[in-house]
Design a protein around this nucleic acid. Structure first.
Length: 309
RNA sequence: CCAACGGGAGCCGGACGGUUAGGCAAAGGUCUGUAAAACCUUCGUAAGCAGGUUCAACUCCUGCCCGUUGGA
């Protein structure tokens, strides 16, 4: 049975560099599980900072104005895994998008129901209580099974309605990864957050603002790719820049910029928290605390054991 | 020294003589074709100090302290 390595964890824990290291050591090929690095042109803000000659599959595969989904990801990733296995190499899946990783190890039947964008467009204009009534009418069983959080979540309600309106029979997905080692990097918040903040400063210095500026010549804020951390927070700033030309407003612009950066910082913290929540509940995961000094040895031991078994 | 304005949870902050402001942060959570999305819960019962008015004061009055701005 062919083996697979999975590396997950919140942002700023060094997943990619670990993956590169392991790929070199064990003749591996890296597959990204990152819902934002799939976009071309979002480089600095999504942290595509690996060496240029290092191949990472499933990054830069679509444009920022295109939609993407976990089901599409699943399909592409499975293809990649097969291909890498056929070359006799070790696939290393690395990323922070819990849903994408989950789509590989825990697929579900609703993947056979495709999105209906016309329906979504219409439903998007309705209030949450209305969506609730619609779902209750169509499928009261599903509606009643929703927890408090999901029953107030328009995105999730719309998807449920979409499923209940679909006439297709649900067919279960058979392909499911099983012979894998799942390592999840983690760290306490008071260790992780300063690292995040530091990386934010680096990305600003690396020219994030000019990257956004050039993206905006082709794309706009309503495109799915721009609804991304490190990008979406700067909308107020760029709105200001384009509407106000007077130099007298420089101080004000600077103030707006500062508040955008602050917003971004907070959003990154919240994101890291959500990621940790996600990985916490995945069974069979091996957590490695990167704030501990011996974490590299722990990883080496885990991987060596797994590959020799 | 004088004047004006202000003083509230870790921060911002609207209102207001009595009922949860709200937002941010922080922490926890939900999760299956938007997931770096979207959504939920918790948490903070707080008012510079000393008095007074009042059944009731963050809110009104007096004094003091502190801060900002303006003036000498």
């Amino acid at each position: 049975m062919s083996k697979i390595l999975i590396i997950s964890g919140p942002t700023a824990t060094g997943k990619t560099s670990l993956a590169i290291k392991l790929a070199k050591k064990y003749n591996g090929q890296i597959i990204s599980a990152d819902s934002r690095q799939i976009y071309r042109g979002l480089d600095i803000g999504t942290g595509k900072d690996h060496p240029k000659n290092q191949t990472i599959h499933l990054i830069d595969i679509i444009n920022p104005n295109q939609a993407f989904s976990s089901a599409e990801y699943r399909q592409l990733a499975l293809e990649q895994i097969n291909q890498i296995h056929s070359q006799g190499k070790l696939p290393i899946i690395v990323g922070g998008t819990g849903l994408y990783i989950d789509s590989l190890i825990n697929p579900r039947h609703t993947f056979s129901i495709k999105p209906n964008f016309i329906l979504r467009f219409i439903l998007n204009h309705l209030s949450t209580p209305t969506l609730q009534s619609i779902l209750k009418f169509l499928d009261s069983k599903t509606y009643n099974s929703l927890n408090h959080s999901d029953s107030l979540n328009p995105h999730r309600l719309i998807r449920k309605i979409e499923i209940s309106l679909s006439l297709k029979n649900l067919k279960s997905e058979k392909t499911k990864l099983d012979n894998y080692l799942h390592i999840s990097l983690t760290a306490p918040n008071d260790y992780l957050f300063p690292r995040i903040d530091q990386r934010i400063d680096q990305r600003l210095q690396a020219g994030l603002l000019s990257e956004i500026k050039s993206l905006l010549t082709q794309y706009n804020w309503s495109h799915p790719g721009l609804n991304t951390l490190a990008y979406k927070e700067f909308k107020p700033y760029f709105d200001k820049v384009s509407f106000v030309k007077g130099r007298s407003d420089e101080a004000e612009r600077d103030f707006v910029l500062k508040s955008c950066i602050q917003r971004w910082r907070f959003d990154e913290h919240a994101y890291a928290r959500r990621q940790k929540t996600w990985f916490k509940k995945i069974p069979g995961i091996n957590f490695i605390d990167i704030s501990k000094s011996d974490f590299n040895q722990q990883i080496d031991k885990l991987v060596a054991n797994f590959l020799s078994s």
